[in-house]
Design a protein around this nucleic acid. Structure first.
Lengths: 195, 195, 195, 195
DNA sequence: CATGAATGAGATTTCATTCAT
DNA sequence: GATGAATGAAATCTCATTCAT
């Protein structure tokens, strides 16, 4: 491997996600990753002493924009509805450019059984929902959105739509205009909640 | 096990789903199932020669209402919107009474890699969407729903919401009023598409 | 393998002890045992799910006479000194006929680290000492042995001599008259404690 | 590590013994030693090209007093019995102050398999016995000890008692007055052999 | 001198699967 | 129909060791 040190761990994760995307999550064997990267299995375990450490980093990478997104949108003092649209748009662009990562999105349940991974999974899931919830509440306070609605439930709707559309894309093996259709769908919902 | 032969296969599936629910899909090992049912691994392989046969039957069971639902609703010549509500309601009752089955719902991606299982997964996913699509189209034809909307996309929205809410229930370990919140969510969408 | 069921586990233990004797305790690999018995590693793990289960059974086998000995000698209402001589004699005959087993005797420290094995080790060690202690106390009560001596310490002396002689035999690779020399040694001590 | 070069090898041995004491001999992995000393594994292999070189030095350290002891006692032209008592006393003081070292004493058998280590083990074991043997023979010649006794066997008794008591101390996790009880035990034997 | 990257061999363990009885 | 014996392949992980820098 002719990579510099800082890139090795990164590459392992990248290829692990690639494998996860191609063959399903239970097929990310260390042997396969090693073969693909043309390194030894030993090296993988040097860098990630437990396989679950590697899986954790996959989750980390899957959620790497989550915090940034939060701060970015919180800083801008823009219209809350626009912030929501920006958020949705932003993730969809990411997923369209890096569709493999959506494999992680569909595998939440597979991390079941390992306490740490499960916790991480939960924190990603609820983190995203709570971010959206806050935005929607802001919009409600600004009088842009109906105040009779349960903000968290609306957030869950939006989040579910994105995840569902990603699954559809996966099951059509890419023959699905993810961003277009998801924006269409979320726009419908956003229109419905506006006053 | 003091069961008659015809019930055994059934029970195997039931316990397999139970395990899948408890420990994640990658933990339904034949050994574990056998231990839980107090039968030999050999017997499992008598009844399901390949493990994928067993997984296929799990998928079968997960989708057992799908066809019935289709015929039921097609027979009744009722209002298309009511049919959709009936459909959603019906699944939610099922999932509330048998939450373990929703583990399957979250594991679509895990069947990736095996051609037959993958195909079954797809047919369930798209079968459900296409049923809903048809209902929505009917509603459009009846003038109940806005005809400018892409019926399939609306169907995907509804389907995604149900799946997303099921995931939320799972991640909250049951502390989530699945049916109530999902009806609330889908009602919002249904209201939005009505004329 | 053409053994009947009840013998298989037995044989695994036998060969494991053989290997332990030949190559040291850290060389009892499941692979080696399997090779020697001409069975698959899988089968070993069917019978002993954890390697430590196998090691535990080795310890069990090492101490299999301990309880019998206790009951045997307690039943006979003979002279306590004779009981002690019988005990020592008995073990030495066993070790002379099955010298491989003494490998276990020298490996107490190697079971350090695994809580269960460590506990078993302790219970064997102290069990033997406490049996001897009781005999010596009896002898003291009968006026056969000096009552100013710490019975447990005398027991430890006897036990240590046996273990030490077994080590000597091992290090001379068998060129050492174990029984003869040990009886000589313990007799010296027994003579010294008698009134 | 802020040590000068000449101390490094020393420290590696010290920590290796510490590990051996804590986790059993099979747990002195180079990785563990490196971690504990906060140095790289590479450095360990610079100083000890083979792991067995390191183990050999552990044995060396374990027996570092052996030769000194021999010369010291040979020089003094004192009473042979006193020399023996001095010898025993001296080792016990050492072991009481550095109980970790006794881990080595219990691991003789673990060096089995490697020719060089095995040889070293033997030479320590028999070296100690032969030193004691010589002392006892001297005592016999001086008419202090019964001449009908096999001097080497008496030496083996004394040696075994020391080793056995050290084991007892280890298995009681230190709650055992090693020196006191061992002196008590060896005194009994020494009294028994005296005329 | 010292590190950290890298490895290959081997250990333990899991798993789906076969087969004789 | 049911079991339990048995397996071989693969997965995770450990370990001593080498080597370029």
């Amino acid at each position: 491997m002719e990579l510099d040190a800082s890139q090795r761990k990164e590459f392992i994760i990248l290829y692990a996600i690639e494998l996860m995307n191609e063959n399903g999550i239970h097929n990310i064997s260390t042997k396969e990753i090693a073969k693909r990267l043309n390194i030894s299995e030993g090296l993988i375990f040097k860098l990630y002493p437990k396989k679950s450490d590697l899986l954790l980093e996959i989750l980390e990478r899957f959620s790497q924009y989550d915090k940034d997104m939060l701060y970015t949108a919180m800083d801008k003092n823009e219209n809350a509805m626009d912030a929501i649209r920006f958020y949705i748009n932003s993730y969809l662009s990411y997923y369209e450019n890096y569709p493999e990562i959506t494999a992680v999105y569909q595998s939440y349940d597979s991390f079941h059984g390992d306490a740490i991974l499960e916790q991480k999974t939960r924190s990603i899931f609820f983190g995203r929902i709570s971010y959206l919830t806050i935005m929607i509440q802001k919009a409600q306070e600004s009088g842009l959105v109906r105040s009779d609605l349960d903000a968290e439930n609306v957030a869950t709707i939006l989040s579910s739509i994105i995840r569902g559309m990603c699954l559809k894309r996966r099951l059509t093996e890419g023959h699905f205009p993810l961003k277009e259709k998801t924006i269409e769908a979320t726009s419908l919902v956003l229109a419905a909640i506006q006053i």
